[in-house]
């Protein structure tokens, strides 16, 4: 069961390597390779880490802001954890759950839920091994590259993470008009926080929280996601 998990985790691990490589590049602008890599090793989240990094290096960033931003951005993991707790085997006891909870990410969750049988601790552990290694090693490689590569290359690599964000957001927008509208609302708010003078005083973390929460509330109010759709 463990080996089946490792095998199923391989494609996730490769994908994570690429994404976290860009995170490493982004982080290398602000801190040493060790500190950037340690963020990835302790968090294992994409959007949450990136927002966290920006709050950390923002002179106006506060701990409260960090806590609230992380809470909202990563709240979806709670939903996944609830759903996954229905799917795990009876020997998935509390100590295992505490040890392996870090493995609840969008992709690992999706693969676990696609299993025919109940998810055992061995399988879940096997499944999260390569993604965890890929995520940490990718960050390390990116951060070191960011320190040694010439600036004209790191300048270009700096948009890689944003490129991946675009690649995640655009396909569901193409599929569902409702998602497109909700995303446009989020972008409009984000632009307002950047360019409208009275709103410019709002710090980075809070502006992301407000944009995401307001746009998602708007979406939940007017375009309820149907049961069959796993993603909007």
């Amino acid at each position: 069961m463990f080996l089946k998990g490792v095998k199923d985790g391989l494609p996730i691990g490769i994908g994570y390597f690429a994404v976290s490589f860009s995170f490493g590049i982004a982080g290398s602008k602000f801190m040493s390779w060790f500190l950037v890599t340690f963020i990835s090793m302790t968090n294992l989240t994409s959007a949450g880490q990136f927002a966290g990094l920006n709050i950390m290096v923002d002179a106006a960033g506060t701990f409260l802001e960090m806590a609230i931003a992380t809470f909202f951005i990563n709240l979806r993991y709670s939903l996944m954890a609830i759903t996954l707790s229905q799917k795990v085997s009876s020997d998935f006891t509390t100590p295992y759950r505490l040890l392996l909870a870090t493995g609840i990410t969008d992709e690992i969750f999706a693969v676990s839920m696609a299993q025919q049988n109940r998810v055992t601790p061995r399988y879940f552990f096997g499944l999260m091994v390569l993604p965890y290694i890929g995520w940490s090693l990718g960050t390390l490689t990116g951060a070191v590259s960011g320190e040694i590569l010439p600036s004209w290359i790191t300048n270009a690599l700096g948009v890689a993470l944003y490129g991946m964000f675009v690649a995640i957001v655009v396909p569901p927008c193409k599929k569902h008009l409702s998602t497109l509208i909700v995303v446009v609302v989020a972008i409009a708010l984000s632009l307002a926080f950047k360019y409208v003078p009275v709103l410019q005083g709002v710090s980075y973390g809070f502006s992301i929280i407000i944009c995401a929460v307001v746009a998602s509330l708007f979406g939940a109010m007017f375009f309820s996601v149907k049961e069959s759709d796993d993603e909007p």
Partner: peptide, 12 residues
């Protein structure tokens, strides 16, 4: 919660 990932990434 389903809309959160897309709206966060778009705003970022």
């Amino acid at each position: 919660l389903a809309y959160i990932p897309c709206t966060v990434l778009a705003a970022m």
